[in-house]
Design a binder for these strands. Structure first.
Lengths: 205, 205
DNA sequence: GTCTATAGATGGATAGAC
DNA sequence: GTCTATCCATCTATAGAC
């Protein structure tokens, strides 16, 4: 029994109305394939095959391939920002920074494909789409930069340069995405601890 | 006057023997275009147009597109490793680490396209080529990990985890490639200083 | 909502003239 | 060494049947 057979009571794999299933399935397949092989290297036929439909059917759910990519990236960044806004906590600069570091690392572990896509496929966006995505990415970066600047101002942190430290930290934390697989000797909680440990000393807190 | 006119004394743009010029020109054009738009998104015709020849002529210099990519990545990593071996210096763990940090940041600033290509296009390599490149990448990572492990052993560094710190540092330092443009308020020497400052505190040296 | 079929463009790579 | 010409595969996207 798969999701489809639950819907119509048979093991049908052809024809019928499955908009509620096919739409998300396309997005999931596209996300996985784009993250694995790259946007330009993945064909609409491959995505369709993964979902179990023909290529033409994809165009009932997206006007074109570019929009499919853009929607995946936009949704990811909006979800990331929204998740951070409800997670952020702490009153002191150090507490706020810790909440950001743990959130960022944890989120990057949980949503590997979306995170990877969002920073690997920027160059495959049209100029208009790129501008929209960059605005969202920048808003997220500013969240960290604001914490660092406040800590520097209050004397809680001693940073050689707030802007460069922001970029250095983002790079360091995002890097977890490139090596962590979840099947190693360390679990998610331990990774978060280690990254926070490194960060704390880096900002001299 | 361009390089070609110097060679044969006329402003010729067609026919003639230019193996010594065309070969490197193809590699430079491919490196730039692959780095900017991605391997899969760049056509052999685009590369040829950039060089000033027709697509067919490229096949006098590379058996196929995949080999062109592989050679660029392999050359980069071999050059990187060789450059590091002649640059590495210092006797104490802290001195060795400083030499690595400054080398890595400086090299990433100087060879932006090659560096970017080497970590963005791994997924477009055939399995055999991927394995060869991964061996080289790993050898470079081990250089840093060895320094950190030695410092930890000697009590010069206090790291929560040598392996994770290696990956965190590589991510942090490599990140300079994604934002530094050379036309900002900071020069190369200052960037190296800042990254070393952050690193030194991170390892508790 | 999905399929078959296809238009129209573009891709990598090769053959043979010069 | 390069060009012209081309083969053949593949791609995105659409039209029309069911």
């Amino acid at each position: 029994m798969n999701a489809r057979s639950v819907t119509n009571g048979v093991m049908a794999r052809k024809a019928g109305s499955h908009a509620d299933i096919t739409g998300p399935a396309i997005r999931e397949a596209a996300l996985r394939l784009f993250a694995r092989s790259g946007y330009a290297a993945v064909s609409m036929r491959q995505i369709a095959a993964e979902v179990g439909v023909r290529a033409g059917a994809l165009y009932l759910y997206t006007p074109d391939k570019q929009t499919l990519l853009f929607d995946l990236m936009q949704d990811h960044l909006e979800t990331l920002l929204a998740a951070w806004k409800v997670t952020k906590s702490g009153t002191s600069p150090a507490e706020r920074l810790q909440s950001f570091v743990r959130f960022h690392v944890g989120y990057h572990i949980d949503r590997r494909d979306a995170v990877f896509l969002a920073y690997m496929e920027l160059r495959n966006l049209t100029p208009e789409n790129f501008a929209a995505i960059e605005t969202l990415r920048s808003a997220y970066e500013v969240e960290l930069e604001t914490i660092l600047a406040a800590g520097q101002e209050a004397g809680a942190f001693r940073l050689p340069d707030v802007r460069v430290t922001t970029m250095a930290l983002i790079g360091m934390l995002t890097g977890v995405n490139t090596w962590f697989r979840g099947d190693g000797r360390l679990d998610r909680e331990r990774i978060e601890q280690i990254y926070w440990n490194l960060t704390r000393r880096m900002v001299h807190a």
